[in-house]
Nucleic acid binder design. Structure first.
Lengths: 145, 145
DNA sequence: TCCTCATCTCGGAATCTTCCGAAATATACG
DNA sequence: CGTATATTTCGGAAGATTCCGAGATGAGGA
C-alpha cells in the first residue's frame, strides 16, 4: 500500500469541493465500476452534456480523474496515482450502500451495452424509456433489432 | 477498529462540503490537537467570532464536531463517534504537513495559555502582537503582570 | 471536401456561500 | 437586579457555483 503523498491545504480543499456535489460524487462512484464517456454519464445523471463536461473538468483539475480520448469520445477513469486515491476510495465505501449510488451502479452495464448514437438522441430520457416500456415489455434497452 | 457506518449520499455531500473550506479545514486540524472555544479559534483564524460560529455550526450539523458548554464558553471537539471520523482523520493526515496547518498547531498551546478576556479585546491581532514584541522581548504572550 | 456527432467553451440566470457588524441570547459576577 | 462578556442569529453585500443552450472545436465518415 503506497503511503499517500502530502498535499497543500489548497489542493486538498479543491479535492474536497470536487466530492461535495451529488453529481460529481455519483460520477466518481460510477467510475469505480467502469471507465465511461461523457454521453454515458450524461444519460445516467440526466444532465446536459455541457454540465457533465464541466463537472468532469473540475474532477480532472483537482487530480481525481484521468481522461483518455478515443476517436470522438472522451473516456474518464479514476486516477489510481492521485494523492487522494485512497481517501476517495474510503469516501466511496461510505456511500456505497446509498440507494442512488447503487441504482447508478446497476444501470452502468445496461448503458454500456447501448450504442453511443442512441444515447444522444433523447431516446433515453426517463419519459422515452417509460413510453417504450409501455409498448414493448422487453427488458433490455440494447439491441433494438 | 469500528467499521464505519454507511451514510446517505446527501449526508456525505454535507460532510464533504464541511471539509471543503480553508477555515473549516483548519478548525478540524486544530481540534485534533485540543478542544477549543470559539474565541480561541477566532483569534487564530483572524476571523470574526460570528463567522467562526457559523463555520462551527456547519461542522456540527454535518456531524463532524461536538460542542460542550462551560459557563459562557462553548468548547468544540472532533466527534470520535462520527461515521466520518476515520475519513476525516485520513484527510487531516494528508494535509498535516501543510505550512498553514502546522503553523496553527504551533500556536494552539500559546493561545490556550492566554486568559480568555485578553483574546476578545483586539490585543492579539497581528499588529498588536508585533507592537508588544517590539517593546517587551518576553516570549510568553500570557501573564501581562 | 462537406457533414455528422461527441465534447468543450462561453454567457447569463438562478441560487448558494461567505463574511461582517448589529442586535439577540445566555451565563456569570457584583 | 444590572452589567459584562462569550456566543449565536439576523440582514445584507460581494462573490462563487450550478445549470443550460448556443456556438466553437476536433475527429471520423460519405
Amino acid at each position: 500500500m503506497p503511503r499517500p503523498r502530502p498535499v497543500s491545504h489548497r489542493q486538498f480543499v479543491a479535492a474536497a469541493k470536487a466530492l461535495a456535489h451529488p453529481a460529481r460524487l455519483r460520477i466518481l462512484a460510477m467510475l469505480r465500476h467502469a471507465e465511461l464517456c461523457v454521453c454515458q454519464m450524461s444519460t445516467i445523471l440526466q444532465l446536459a452534456a455541457s454540465t457533465v463536461s464541466g463537472h468532469l473538468n473540475d474532477l480532472r483539475r483537482s487530480g481525481l480523474v484521468l481522461e483518455r480520448k478515443q476517436g470522438k469520445l472522451v473516456y474518464y477513469a479514476l486516477d489510481p496515482e492521485s494523492p487522494f486515491a485512497a481517501w476517495v476510495a474510503q469516501a466511496l465505501d461510505l456511500v456505497a450502500s446509498d440507494s442512488r449510488i447503487r441504482a447508478d451502479a446497476a444501470v452502468i452495464n445496461r448503458v454500456r451495452a447501448v450504442p453511443i448514437p442512441l444515447l444522444t438522441r433523447g431516446d433515453l430520457t426517463l419519459e422515452a424509456i417509460r413510453k417504450r416500456r409501455a409498448r414493448r415489455p422487453a427488458t433490455s434497452p440494447a439491441a433494438p433489432a
